[in-house]
């Protein structure tokens, strides 16, 4: 079966001006990303702030244009289209298939539009339905996400965060999409509401045969919802594997760090102190030479400081680490208290 989306050699950089008259500096937000999304799967993209996961999502939905590379989409008729080169008008039909759910339920709904109009807007833009049919379709979409269609005449501010997120999901679903990109869709919600939305996303996936790209920083949620995981660090994919493989046997030291940093709701598994990456994520403007993670990696060697490792396949995992075969990393499924190695913040 064809991949639904195939991202090839995608790079995106932002240019910033330093000061009023200073020179231009270029920040690489994404560097040479290769990624395939299979139909029907939930692919998670995880990483910390500034890793490029949001930029990648936005490049795929064409809210941003990458500098180089391709985003190949396979619509139902089986042909392959590079979305990157499309003009606005050419892109419009595919916007029905590829939809997005936003992080912040407060800012993603227009405060000046009634909920009915917010959900009806995509139908109106694509001239899919009007009158009675439009009302029915909006009502169906709202019902699907658990919002009473009678509440459609209200404005978004009358709804709680969780309800607003449901409305945002209804807006994405009303066009019968094939791929939904959820950018930190549950991060801003309280835990109990987060669980409701996660369950809803799962149910909708089954009902509509959706494919998800689930962008998140929360590995607990990612383990729960996704089939495959891509770990990003400083604009690179450093590891890509099945969820279970990745959590069981991480191959990249950064993945291990992320897994160990995840607080687990069980005081018996409380970490003494962790393996811990040293220091903090470097500013994206000073991307280290060689492996982007070498400044914080406990296994770093000279080679890591000079050669950038490519993503390569080891067993079921794709990983960008020179020593992936030799290093021993801990997974997240152990229930034993986590041992520790002392940490020191490096300059």
């Amino acid at each position: 079966m064809n991949d639904l989306i195939r991202v090839e050699n995608l790079s995106k950089s932002f240019t910033l001006r330093r000061g009023l008259v200073g020179g231009l500096i270029s920040l690489d937000a994404l560097k040479d990303i290769n990624l395939a999304v299979r139909p029907g799967e939930t692919l998670a993209i995880v990483g910390e702030s500034g890793c490029g996961k949001t930029t990648l999502g936005r490049c795929i939905v064409k809210a941003m244009t990458p500098n180089t590379g391709k985003v190949l989409y396979t619509p139902e008729n089986g042909e392959t289209i590079d979305l990157v080169g499309l003009k606005k008008r050419q892109m419009k039909p595919w916007r029905r298939d590829i939809r997005m759910i936003f992080q912040d339920p407060m800012s993603s709904l227009n405060p000046y539009m009634r909920v009915f109009d917010i959900v009806a807007e995509p139908l109106r833009i694509h001239k899919i339905a009007k009158g009675r049919e439009l009302e029915d379709r909006v009502a169906t979409a709202l019902e699907k996400v658990g919002i009473d269609p009678a509440a459609g005449q209200r404005f978004p501010h009358a709804f709680s965060g969780g309800q607003r997120q449901r409305i945002g999901i209804a807006r994405a679903l009303v066009l019968d999409p094939r791929l939904v990109i959820a950018d930190e869709a549950v991060s801003a919600l309280d835990v109990s509401i987060q669980a409701q939305i996660l369950n809803l996303l799962e149910d909708l996936k089954d009902d509509f045969g959706l494919t998800y790209i689930f962008i998140s920083h929360d590995l607990g949620v990612v383990n729960y919802i996704s089939d495959r995981v891509a770990v990003m660090y400083l604009g690179n994919i450093v590891e890509l594997a099945d969820t279970e493989t990745l959590f069981e046997r991480p191959r990249h030291p950064y993945t291990e760090v992320l897994l160990e940093a995840l607080p687990i709701a069980d005081p018996k598994r409380r970490a003494g102190k962790r393996t811990e990456a040293r220091g903090e994520i470097p500013y994206i403007g000073n991307r280290p030479k060689g492996c982007p993670f070498h400044t914080r990696c406990r296994f770093a060697q000279d080679r890591c400081r000079n050669d950038r490792p490519e993503l390569r396949k080891i067993d079921a995992t794709e990983v960008a680490c020179h020593f992936a075969e030799t290093i021993e990393l801990r997974g997240a499924y152990d229930s034993a208290p986590r041992p520790h190695i002392s940490q020191k913040v490096s300059p």
Binding site: A195, V221, N223, Y224, E244, L262
Partner: peptide, 8 residues
């Protein structure tokens, strides 16, 4: 409500 760290 919190997803547990479990295998599939």
């Amino acid at each position: 409500s919190i997803p547990k760290m479990q295998r599939k």
